[in-house]
Simulated scan of single mutants.
Amino acid sequence: MVRPREFQDEAIFYGVYRALCKKGYGQATLTDITHEVDISPAALMKRFGSKRNLFLAYSDYVIELTRHAFQEASVSDCSRIDALKTVFKHGVLHMKDPVELANHTSFYLEGTSDPDLLEKTRSRLLLIDEFIRQMLNHAIANKEIAECDVPMVSRVLQAAISGAMMIWIKEPSRTLDVLFDECFQVVFAPLWNVTTQ
């Protein structure tokens, strides 16, 4: 029985993910991707037409994964802040080490030379910011945190998380979970303190 195309594409995109983690955007080839998933280079070309088209489709897939992760977090039973932290932690769950993280991140950095890839990266970042702001507003409404400048807190949190991933390169003996916990502790401590006074 033939598998649905959606499943095949998901398997292919996981192959793209693994190839990016191992080689980085500039070095990952279609052959590297086919080594990660049970598909021939000819079938990959027939499905997507080019490496660029494959990466554009992968970008769309990652955007949808991001949207899904935040939507799930927005209906979870835990606090909005804990749910938000879970999204960030889950996003890097399969990164084995800082090298894999740096290699995969190169997709977003080096891909800026392609206007279409850059636009997809911007769309994903805007989506992340939008969901963070929504969750912060819900946290304020639920009295989990004090009133605050939501856009600023969102920017600072994103900057802290991005910085934590860079620090992991310098301090690989620590885990991203620990580094992310520190980010949330420092960013939200003043807001938690206000609500508990």
Rank of each mutant, 00 (worst) to 15 (best):
I140G: 00
T31H: 11
V75F: 11
D9W: 01
D9F: 02
I63E: 05
L125K: 08
K23Y: 12
L30E: 11
N142V: 01
K46H: 14
A164Q: 05
K96I: 00
Y61N: 05
T31N: 13
M165D: 04
S154Y: 07
L44I: 08
L44M: 12
E110M: 13
Q8M: 09
T29F: 08
T195Y: 01
I33A: 08
P190R: 10
A102L: 12
L125N: 07
E171K: 14
L56M: 11
F55K: 00
K51R: 15
P172F: 05
S123I: 00
I161E: 04
L126D: 12
L117G: 03
L191Q: 01
T29E: 08
E147A: 06
Q8R: 14
H68P: 02
S154N: 06
L136A: 06
M166N: 13
T31Y: 10
C78K: 12
Q27H: 10
L20P: 00
G26F: 01
L127Y: 01
G91I: 05
L44R: 04
D32R: 06
V178Q: 15
V99Y: 01
T175D: 11
T196R: 15
L125P: 00
H104F: 14
E100G: 02
L176C: 12
Y108M: 05
A11I: 10
P190I: 12
S113H: 14
A69L: 03
S50H: 10
M165K: 15
D149A: 03
V2W: 03
G49D: 10
M166F: 13
H68K: 14
F184K: 06
V16E: 01
A83S: 15
A28C: 09
R47K: 13
G49E: 09
I12Q: 05
C183W: 02
L176K: 09
I169F: 10
R174F: 09
A28W: 02
F55H: 03
T86F: 02
Y108P: 03
R124I: 11
W192V: 07
D32K: 08
K22S: 06
I63V: 12
N53C: 06
A189T: 12
G15N: 06
C21N: 04
H138L: 10
P41S: 08
Q134H: 06
Y108V: 00
K22I: 01
D97G: 08
A73I: 03
A73Q: 05
I167H: 03
R18Y: 00
T196I: 10
P172W: 05
N137D: 11
Q8H: 00
C21T: 09
L30K: 07
R3I: 08
F13G: 08
G111T: 04
P172H: 06
D181I: 09
E64K: 13
